[in-house]
């Protein structure tokens, strides 16, 4: 067993984990932070994306022990201090960037990483960056719009249905 300590969403946490305990399981089962989802469990879908020392990481493919001493951010830490939605979360709501919501935590965390690296990404750059995040509902268009909007860029209104 390994004793680990880390800061999660600004709070010091500690625990004792097996070598094989994944970061996502430590977050969900030990800390009860169930906002981080497990979709594929094979590093492909991105539902489990969290931030480790400021970088996006798939928490299903990192050992909890590897995050010992790290600064970890999850979807639970994204809202503003007063509980209101962050700019990115509000944009996902406004632009209907989700349907079932399963991929959304990972999408929001990936989007936050993107906007930190590249505050005004083009539509192409957003799509490239979301390579590792799969959504089976939206077809991605509204997710891309939400991220464009969150970056303060113009978003074309939806086309009107033909009369």
């Amino acid at each position: 067993m390994n004793s680990i300590k880390m800061r999660v969403n600004g709070k010091e946490v500690s625990g004792t984990v097996e070598g094989r305990t994944l970061l996502v399981d430590f977050l969900r089962k030990d800390l009860r932070l169930t906002g981080t989802h497990v979709g594929c469990d094979t590093t492909q879908c991105g539902a489990c994306v969290v931030h480790v020392n400021g970088n996006p990481v798939k928490a299903c493919s990192m050992l909890a022990a590897e995050a010992d001493g790290a600064e970890v951010g999850t979807i639970e830490g994204q809202a503003n201090a007063d509980g209101s939605l962050s700019v990115i979360q509000a944009a996902f709501q406004e632009h209907h960037g989700l349907q079932c919501g399963f991929c959304t935590p990972g999408m929001i965390m990936a989007a936050a990483s993107l906007l930190k690296e590249n505050p005004k990404p083009s539509e192409h750059e957003i799509r490239e960056y979301l390579d590792g995040n799969i959504c089976r509902c939206t077809g991605y268009h509204n997710i891309v719009k939400a991220i464009l909007a969150a970056s303060g860029q113009e978003v074309a209104p939806p086309a009107m249905a033909a009369e």
Partner: peptide, 9 residues
């Protein structure tokens, strides 16, 4: 290589 999360690790 891979995607941004893979490149972090």
């Amino acid at each position: 290589i891979g995607d941004p999360s893979v490149r972090s690790m």
